[in-house]
Design a protein around this nucleic acid. Sequence first.
DNA 1: GTCATTTATATGTATAATGCACATAGAATA
DNA 2: TATTCTATGTGCATTATACATATAAATGAC
Lengths: 137, 137
Amino acid sequence: MGKEEHKKENEAKQKEPRGLEARPRNWLVPVILLSLRDWNSYGYELMERATTFGFGTMNPGTLYRTLRQMEKDGIVESTWETSKGGPARRMYTITEAGETYLGFWAKSLEQYQRTMDTFFSMYTGKPPKGRDKKDEE
Amino acid sequence: MGKEEHKKENEAKQKEPRGLEARPRNWLVPVILLSLRDWNSYGYELMERATTFGFGTMNPGTLYRTLRQMEKDGIVESTWETSKGGPARRMYTITEAGETYLGFWAKSLEQYQRTMDTFFSMYTGKPPKGRDKKDEE
DNA sequence: GTCATTTATATGTATAATGCACATAGAATA
DNA sequence: TATTCTATGTGCATTATACATATAAATGAC
């Protein structure tokens, strides 16, 4: 259901400034792969899952285009499903390469978590290391 | 079907595919702000700091352009410094708005950390680890 | 039957972040 | 003088993503 949403431009200006989205680029990809690892699915359904991972009401175009790109990259495969009622669905399956890719992502995210921990310890004032000046480490 | 099936040439190597960088867009901004909060600095020096936060050997252009944008956004300010030897340096200072912005970032990152925990618990099939508890272990 | 709605997929365009290559220039030094 | 180091900057291409719009099949209302 498309509801008319009013823009609140005259409110507080100091709200979330500029591009403040603390999620990595390509975040949609691992989220989709993780969903597909559990069970095969299709775009329209995957959109709902995506919203639980930091995406607020996905735009369809973004998701579908991402899925096509992922298939081109060989990390998912698709087939048309017409057996169910309603319009045809393009059912997606994760490939072996997709699972590998997901593994890479997990590793990368792990390291990023560590980096963020460093960020927070510096932000809160608790030094992870004695960074005075450029002295030897 | 796809006409252009030529995919990756490095299938055997299975190395880091495509844009697999698990850091958020605009990651440079909070990193710079965090550095500037400790002490004023300039581009050339800030590059080194940035490498410790997930950037492998920054390209100068990226950093300088980001700094100019940050100034335009009002989160940093700059003045030329010619007193020291060598070419003039554009010394940057974090503004009040910058500190506020950094606060937004921290909050956003905190939430994203929780999202990533969810991701990992789904990925490994285990319940999320106690990141929130600090009395653990 | 036909019209609006829901489900489902896709494209077109614009913007913004980022990487890479290259340009500019002062200062030190060989 | 010319070469190198330090320091800042621009141009261009790629890519991710947002937003708007298009297409179409099935379903339900009347």
